[in-house]
Write a protein that binds this DNA or RNA. Structure first.
Lengths: 160, 160
DNA sequence: ACCCCCTTGTTATATTATAACGCCTGCGCT
DNA sequence: AGCGCAGGCGTTATAATATAACAAGGGGGT
């Protein structure tokens, strides 16, 4: 099980993600530029999903460009290369919790705090896809709900 | 297996979805107003996902209001009550293929023609969620790819 | 008659995302 | 050195998706 909602050594988390990204870029001839690296660091600060415009605001405050394409391109690079993932249910982005190892990610997504736990599960739907002659290119698996911290703190107002 | 990409009697498809919606509304005290009913009919015309603004354009052409909330509210009603589903990966909406029976839907979503096949699979992630104390409220399971018709017709340009 | 809830409509604005172009740099080539 | 090219970053402008907030009307209950 990947962490996300549990307490853990987050510094190690950040360090290993960054060094995995560096290694992957070096190995594949990709440029981990200051902008891209900083974007990844921003995502890595927490396990919460950030909107592209949240990331953009951070980048702008640090002297990078201020227009949407700056953030979208950096995020696109990270997502395309597996260093980050897009959470469709939130239209937001989160750092990859398993950098380096190729994987079909799936997520527990808290609607209270937007934190995300990344899990590795066997791909569902494969037999159905095959029966239909459908070529799967990407799986989106997101469980939306409330993490235990949010339920306890009343964030997201439990259903009556 | 639900249809979606295969040939089938679509007229029966539409009729059964509409009568299931009528029955569910009658049973639950919901109002299937002309706007809501027409919105469902528009979604039912094909198994392709439609954007809210596509639906809005159709509604407006038929004399309904022309502003986004008109479409978003009708779609919200249909989605809330299980008569339609939102496809997160497309930011679009599709009629439910299994109206009446409660289900956690999952989808094969073609990026060539936007058609959607709705499948019923066992919820993944349940054990992981439990281990984290995470309360799942909704599962999003979408396999994105190309249907056989699109692959054969070259739509979506096969990977080189 | 009156009230209340629900539905539909509006105006206005927020949020998310991409197209298209220019500049600069680093790199390979001659 | 000089040239050309590709990639990255920045811009302007606009597209696409979504919601907040308020007004008007209808229909049922008392």
């Amino acid at each position: 099980m990947a962490h996300g909602f549990d307490r853990h050594d987050h510094r190690a988390c950040v360090a290993s993600a960054l060094s995995a990204a560096e290694a992957a870029c070096a190995g594949r001839g990709l440029a981990l530029t200051p902008l891209r690296r900083r974007t990844l660091e921003i995502l890595l600060e927490s396990h919460a999903a950030l909107g592209a415009y949240d990331v953009l605001a951070r980048l702008e405050a640090e002297g990078f460009g201020s227009k949407p394409p700056v953030a979208y391109r950096a995020l696109g690079f990270l997502v395309d290369n597996g260093f980050a993932h897009r959470i469709e249910g939130l239209s937001a982005y989160v750092a990859c919790a398993r950098p380096g190892s190729p994987h079909e990610p799936s997520f527990l997504v808290c609607r209270g705090c937007r934190r995300v736990a990344e899990e590795a599960i066997a791909a569902p739907l494969a037999p159905e896809a095959e029966a239909e002659g459908f070529a799967v290119e990407r799986m989106v698996v997101e469980a939306q709900g409330l993490c235990s911290a949010c339920r306890e703190s009343g964030r997201g107002a439990a259903p009556c």
